[in-house]
Amino acid sequence: MTHDAVRLDSVTRRYGSLTALDGVSLSFPAGTFTAVMGPSGSGKSTLLQCAAGLDRPTSGSVAVAGTELTGLSERRLTLLRRERVGFVFQAFNLLPSLTAEQNVALPLRLAGRRVPASRVRQALGQVGLADRARHRPAQLSGGQQQRVALARALITRPDVLFGDEPTGALDTRTGREVLGLLRDMVDREGQTVVMVTHDPVAAAYADRVIFLVDGRLSGELTGADADAIALRMTRLEAVPC
């Protein structure tokens, strides 16, 4: 039976007089790939940050893998993010002085946990970089660096992987390779992926696309191709404020 990897109930996030999210209720079932889209300033990144426990809602509740985040202390919230949540961003955020395998092992080392070499090799193997373990970031292409970042996010075996424009800094071909890798992880390994993107082609890799406008949900598409997603985005962006 499918359960929710992440659930938001009536989540509102205000920054002073600005309402970035306005009463959003949404669930991300385990083992699914969801893309989040919307015009600039629609609340996409705020939604991701609240869902991942990087930001606290002004009101409402967020649960990750069945654990309610609202009442957690900063320490417990940090531990939950470290153990149950993975992050991949547009910037690769690799440490240039460390090799690929050292970068991948970093989250476990920071958590004070033993890092089995076999676990690191497995993570690099998942992203097709088993033969680049000893290379430093400067010796890797942009796509390879993002694959290392992906392996680093997966080393803790997270319940959910969040991506904020993860292919935004990559060329078209390399970006498609990374998206194919994410799709494969969902299909073959049951990984849950939530990705913010502005690219309809990237969003078409997802099972469903959630649309936000002015901090509110504005519908979704399931199993849509890039043309249908682009058309929906064009209509959303044409709506006067």
Score class of each variant (00 low, 15 high):
2 T>K: 05
3 H>F: 09
7 R>A: 15
8 L>D: 07
9 D>I: 10
9 D>W: 12
11 V>G: 03
14 R>Q: 11
21 L>T: 04
22 D>S: 09
26 L>Y: 10
31 G>H: 08
34 T>H: 09
36 V>T: 10
48 L>Y: 03
49 Q>C: 15
50 C>M: 08
51 A>I: 04
53 G>Y: 09
57 P>M: 06
61 S>R: 06
63 A>W: 06
72 L>D: 08
74 E>Q: 11
84 R>Y: 15
89 F>S: 02
92 F>D: 00
97 S>C: 15
99 T>G: 07
101 E>D: 13
104 V>G: 02
104 V>A: 05
106 L>W: 05
111 A>Q: 12
112 G>A: 08
114 R>Y: 06
118 S>W: 15
120 V>G: 09
124 L>C: 11
132 R>D: 07
134 R>P: 05
137 P>A: 01
139 Q>S: 07
142 G>P: 03
147 R>T: 05
147 R>P: 09
147 R>G: 07
151 A>H: 02
156 T>M: 14
158 P>T: 05
162 F>Y: 13
168 G>L: 04
171 D>Y: 11
176 R>A: 02
177 E>L: 15
178 V>E: 02
199 D>K: 03
205 Y>C: 01
209 V>G: 15
211 F>L: 05
214 D>S: 07
218 S>D: 04
220 E>C: 01
223 G>L: 01
232 R>S: 11
233 M>N: 13
237 E>I: 09
240 P>Q: 12
